[in-house]
Design a protein around this nucleic acid. Structure first.
Lengths: 331, 331
DNA sequence: GTGAAAGCGCTAACAC
DNA sequence: GTGTTAGCGCTTTCAC
């Protein structure tokens, strides 16, 4: 039993097996080595020493890391974990791994993380980045994809969902039910998706001569619970929430107030998270293909990684899922 | 403007700045370099070439990666994203990053991932690993922490939650309300936490002379929705679900069947996910300090990384949160 | 204080 | 077919 206190290297294995390091490397990587005796000795030595190749050294030699950096505004937000899931599946299929960091909704943190991750990864995926556009431009030289965020005319790839069309569709749905005054529980002020939704809401409602009241909420159920009363006070007959979580919070408050949904007030959300269909009443919501956004982001990044620099843009359609939380407006 | 087609290295910067690579390195790392002219030239050259140091080369030189590998059975499961969140916060505070991989509930995939990640990381966190104990033992040599999983008497660190006590508490709560027949919507068969809960259920119910019916469900709301009828048919007056998601699915089915909760049937879950309090009725559930488990896992790992090999075990207490979904059994 | 050179652990030319 | 050796890009002694 040889004595090695530090982590064993390929040199140690070569010495113990009485072969060259090249042979060790070849055996371990399944390259052409014919002598079965050598193979045996190498495997034995490697096992005996508990040898594990250094991924870092391999990466340095290979010139790539097969690592993709992902920056998320909030790891705990279920819609980001869904995106992360799609991204992980897609990258794993091509033998790449995810280096994940949580920016905690801070643009400064985001910038710091991007700069650090960029050193260790082959490419970056920025999820709904809160960063200013010109900051983004500086990082655009490396392979980079943004999700759910406009990138202006920057040469940056971007994958996202057509929030504008989605919101337009809910508004028309509600208008069709006779609602003349819609309240919106807005998302985080830094969210580009929220801005898109507000724009669509304004445009569509104006065209339909529908009144709109916007109340700042946020992205959690607590936010929805807290913000609802303002909309009720404003006299809306239907509420659209930035996402399903916010909708759930506001729904709880509606019940507390004794409102019948949708008899007294209608409610719709965004995302179609798994529990949406199990609520009472089941929630009408704009389904976003979030997981697919993750997969598409990888496609885009992969293109940049291989076809050297080809950027692209993907905008995925939404789908209005009408359930029981929206109904005809009171006469 | 110098012509470099490949990614610029420190040598390129040194050449352009007409200094040694050592000086470049020192300037960029804020080491002692006095001549302001040199500093200026280095910074200028670096900026001009858009130079970015190679993290891989640095890691190789440093002998560490500051990367922690995390293997999760299912990235989309909200309770894992919460754990991941806690882990990310804790590691980030000590300048480490997370390399995340989704094993998709497969023990084989898990093994493969562990072996691969181990090559690139300083340590590993295995979340609720489905792997057999002896497989685990083989990986135990490297710094390793398991969450929510017994590790027998293996020299492996482990952080988790006291599922046994949590289940015992719900059962006593239900018994106190007069329930004599409890149904359990079981989790994934490979889940160690589920096994613990079943054991606690059996033990506690036996002590209280309460009847128990266990029905295999899973970990999603769909599973809960699907599995509920069997329990109803068995005549239980209270249902405990493996987690809140499963509880939500079964709750939807109870409503569909016209049951009043908790008038006709009581329901309790595990986790206390954020939406639990917003359901109708608000869900009684065993709150698990999942995020804290993530933080503790890092503490444990950090100990191994620094104090070379000190393993440890942390078992966190649960808390029964009684809301409106549990009530007195029908007389 | 700055430069030359060794070396981190590995793979892949290139010799033999 | 196997061994020798030159790097991959960086940091850090060690001389000067």
């Amino acid at each position: 039993m040889p004595e090695v206190t530090r982590r064993p290297t390929i040199v140690d294995v070569a010495r113990v097996a009485r072969v060259s390091t090249a042979t060790v490397s070849r055996v371990l990587n399944g390259r052409r080595v014919t002598d079965p005796e050598l193979i045996r000795r190498v495997r034995l030595a490697a096992a005996e020493l508990h040898y594990r190749p250094s991924g870092t050294a391999r990466n340095l030699q290979a010139g790539v890391t097969r690592l993709i950096g992902v920056v998320v505004p909030d790891l705990r937000n279920p819609s980001f974990s869904e995106l992360l899931g799609g991204l992980a599946d897609a990258t794993a299929a091509q033998d790449h791994r995810l280096l994940v960091a949580d920016a905690k909704e801070s643009p400064d943190e985001e910038r710091t993380l991007i700069q650090e991750l960029a050193l260790h990864c082959d490419g970056l995926v920025l999820c709904s980045p809160r960063l200013a556009l010109d900051d983004l431009a500086r990082f655009g030289r490396g392979p980079l994809v943004c999700t759910n965020r406009s990138v202006g005319d920057l040469p940056i790839s971007s994958a996202g969902v057509d929030s504008y069309a989605g919101m337009a569709e809910v508004v028309r749905h509600l208008a069709g039910l006779g609602h003349r005054h819609i309240g919106y529980l807005a998302g985080p002020p830094t969210s580009w998706s929220d801005a898109e939704r507000q724009r669509a809401l304004g445009d569509t409602a104006a065209g339909l001569r529908i009144r709109v009241t916007v109340e700042p909420a946020g992205s959690t159920s607590d936010d929805g619970y807290r913000a609802l009363p303002a909309l009720v006070a404003a006299g809306v007959s239907a509420v659209v929430a930035f996402n399903d979580l916010v909708a759930i919070g506001s729904l709880a408050r509606m019940r507390e107030r004794g409102f019948d949904v949708p008899g007294d007030i209608s409610l719709a959300g965004f995302d179609d998270i798994p529990v949406a269909q199990f609520l009472a009443p089941p929630l009408t919501t704009v389904r976003l293909p979030t997981e697919e956004v993750g997969r598409r982001a990888w496609d885009l990044l992969w293109n940049q990684l291989t076809k050297a620099g080809r950027t692209g843009t993907v905008r995925l359609p939404t789908e209005l899922v009408v359930r029981a939380s929206t109904g005809a407006a009171r006469a």
